[in-house]
Design a binder for these strands. Sequence first.
DNA 1: ACTCATCAGGTGTTCAGACCACTTTGACCA
DNA 2: TGGTCAAAGTGGTCTGAACACCTGATGAGT
Lengths: 233, 233
Amino acid sequence: MAFEAVRKSTAPEIVVEQILKKLQSGEITTGARLPSQRELALSFGVGRSSMREALNALAVMGYLDVQQGRGTFIAQELPGTSPSISKLQAALKAGSLLDVIELRETLECKAAELAAERAESLHLRRLKQALRDMEDSRENYRRFLQADVEFHTTLAEATTNQIFSEILRFLLEKVVGHHETFKTTLISLEYRSRSIHTLKQVLACVKREDGRGAAEWMREHLNAIRRELKDIL
Amino acid sequence: MAFEAVRKSTAPEIVVEQILKKLQSGEITTGARLPSQRELALSFGVGRSSMREALNALAVMGYLDVQQGRGTFIAQELPGTSPSISKLQAALKAGSLLDVIELRETLECKAAELAAERAESLHLRRLKQALRDMEDSRENYRRFLQADVEFHTTLAEATTNQIFSEILRFLLEKVVGHHETFKTTLISLEYRSRSIHTLKQVLACVKREDGRGAAEWMREHLNAIRRELKDIL
DNA sequence: ACTCATCAGGTGTTCAGACCACTTTGACCA
DNA sequence: TGGTCAAAGTGGTCTGAACACCTGATGAGT
């Protein structure tokens, strides 16, 4: 037998709900100006402070835009009530590391390929530097990981496809999170050396604009990670 | 000569910032109880209403949990302080449609391949149904688009890789958004017919577990979209 | 005619104080 | 032991008064 939590209805909450309803039903146009806080408080039958709390809450949520001396306006862009974002985050939290690897294999191989075709000298320099950092920090796990991520991030940026690079950055962030949660200091020194070697091959391919080669070496790199992961789990 | 927007520092904002800093530096433990609003206001040197505004903002953001009669508590689960999400959204909004297509080609071809290996009968049924819906709504643009999205979404789900499917769902949502923004009713009837044909091939390949074939037909499908897009732009 | 400083009125912002509603606690009593 | 009740502390709400800021009108000066 389950009970529902008692829904307490405080004044600002009620006001927020009412305004939200009008907002979502399209009764108020974006960019429109609301009456002054004093008037609103009067017409809602609440005190100014309660009215202010409601308006502030809506502002924090991104629905309103309050400007001192000018008034309160409906936000130009209503926050896309997109539940997909939270679903994405939930999936990332719940999803298995192997799933992530599968995605990374798909995306990063293509990224390597595109990078080979489009990378500019700036990217090449950063890739080179990241590899040097990895070599210099073989024994320091955190720094190694950081340089590793830098390499992958730069490669993604070199695709000159902003969406591509942001999604990859997003994924990598989660990978790092996983590492930190599980304190995966376990990663073997041998694996690190092999990583550096493989990524050097990737960089070499990118330099000579060999897309297929870059993709293949990247696949090799990710397979190595997958193997390492399986050993640990 | 560019100027930065003036950063107005209102009292509650400053308080929010300070509390946020303490929160993120881990100076306060989750679940801990804060001093009373009156005390806090005193120690921050602001009025109680300003203090309340700050606390409410933090509560809306999910950092705090205020309970009447009991006190204000740090939320048990601090909201993931990931700015990358908003960056991702920004990139999606600003990024070109061609970039999205490039990503889709990468992801959906792989999805088709994986689906061919893993799809269950439930997925096959839904894919079939989606194709039927597309055929039945050749003349109704919105319904056609909806069925189209359903096909791609189902294919993504058939990978049995939750993260994969969520990211694709996320991308597709944006594509639909683009369509609705630009009122792209322009898409030719011929294109629709060709889409249906190509996707039928994809489904056939998935049925006989031909991963390579499914990927190739999907690539064909996306190339058609790319061509259609170029014509429009 | 144009430019600029000034001012009045409206707006959001902040404050202080009072009171209300709720929760916890502990003293009290049957 | 169990219930009742009052007190104290908490957040919730209201009010009136300043304060800070923006806008538009006014009018003096060029």
